[in-house]
């Protein structure tokens, strides 16, 4: 009775209309977020990158001069490469450190409780600010730091060494320390998908521990390694705090240059061009890594 009565009224519910409204409701926030936080800023950056500075005055225009400068005038291209190298090394060491931890979490901690504790230990450093952690390394590696004092106390050295601080070593060490949790989590997320029975099946078929790792665990973990590698690379690449706090005079990175271009040097168009170049690089990197992740991802 009531159903029929409803159908006869003007504003009877229409499934199609409801679906449309529901889709709009859920799509609106991400669209707003994307436009406000990504599209508009990128557009502004792009706009600036084609202009030029007339002393302290920005002049809009359409010229590729800034891009030519980025590619040909030192130190910009060199610093981008240098930052990429630091990023790569950060990614490499983070992955190397993270892998065994992720393996232990995925396969060797049988109790949920132990797994949870290790998980929290991995996350815990993130409760402290990045700056605090970077400063902590400074106090450890410095001339009167923990490391030097310790080595002197042990009698290994007589005079404090200066090789620990203000160079690429200290930058990479700090970046690795800070970003390794990201690698742990992405590798762990992938390993967790791997059923324990696959490892047992490999052993059952006669594989040694090493063969099981090389033939089963490693190939299945690759997408997690790639994802963790991209994250740690990107974070290391774009970092400017570690070089500022722990780097030497010649160990600046591209982000530090962008900051000084925006500040003291007041060359916003050049800074924008560097930004666009980096965004393009990041897009290329993500495209390749996503393709590889998809290719190596297993269907369980």
């Amino acid at each position: 009775m009531t159903v029929q009565a409803d159908i006869l009224t003007e504003n009877a519910p229409d499934m199609r209309r409801i679906e449309r409204r529901r889709a709009l409701f859920w799509l609106l926030p991400p669209i707003l977020w994307f436009v406000g936080f990504m599209l508009v800023p990128y557009a502004i950056t792009l706009f600036y990158s084609f202009g030029r500075m007339d002393y302290v005055q920005f002049v809009a225009g359409f010229s590729l001069d800034n891009y030519v400068k980025v590619l040909t005038v030192q130190p910009y291209a060199g610093l981008i490469l240098r930052s990429a190298k630091i990023g790569l090394l950060t990614a490499f060491w983070s992955t190397l450190l993270a892998y065994p931890v992720a393996i232990a979490m995925a396969f060797y901690l049988s109790s949920e409780c132990a797994k949870h504790i290790l998980y929290i230990l991995v996350i815990l450093p993130w409760w402290a600010s990045y700056l605090v952690k970077a400063y902590a390394w400074k106090t450890i590696l410095g001339t009167h730091g923990l490391l030097n004092e310790g080595l002197i106390w042990l009698g290994v050295i007589d005079e404090p060494l200066t090789v620990f601080l203000y160079n690429d070593f200290s930058i990479i060490l700090t970046l690795t320390y800070i970003f390794t949790p990201f690698a742990v989590l992405s590798i762990y997320a992938q390993l967790e998908r791997l059923p324990l029975s696959l490892i047992e099946a490999a052993r059952d078929l006669g594989a040694t521990g090493w063969e099981t790792f090389i033939k089963v665990i490693w190939p299945i973990s690759i997408p997690g390694v790639l994802a963790g590698g991209v994250i740690t690379f990107s974070l290391g690449f774009g970092d400017f705090i570690a070089p500022a706090l722990l780097g030497g005079a010649d160990s600046i990175m591209i982000s530090s240059v962008v900051i000084s271009l925006l500040g003291v040097a007041n060359d916003r168009p050049l800074a924008a061009a560097i930004g666009v170049a980096i965004i393009l690089m990041a897009m290329a990197l993500l495209t390749v890594s996503q393709y590889l992740e998809k290719r190596t991802q297993v269907r369980l």
Partner: peptide
């Protein structure tokens, strides 16, 4: 004796085929 050294093979309940 470890499983890898036993002259027997098991067919697992979830089959455990290597997905890759």
């Amino acid at each position: 004796l470890p499983a890898s050294h036993r002259d027997m093979r098991m067919m697992f309940q979830d089959l455990a085929l290597f997905p890759h």
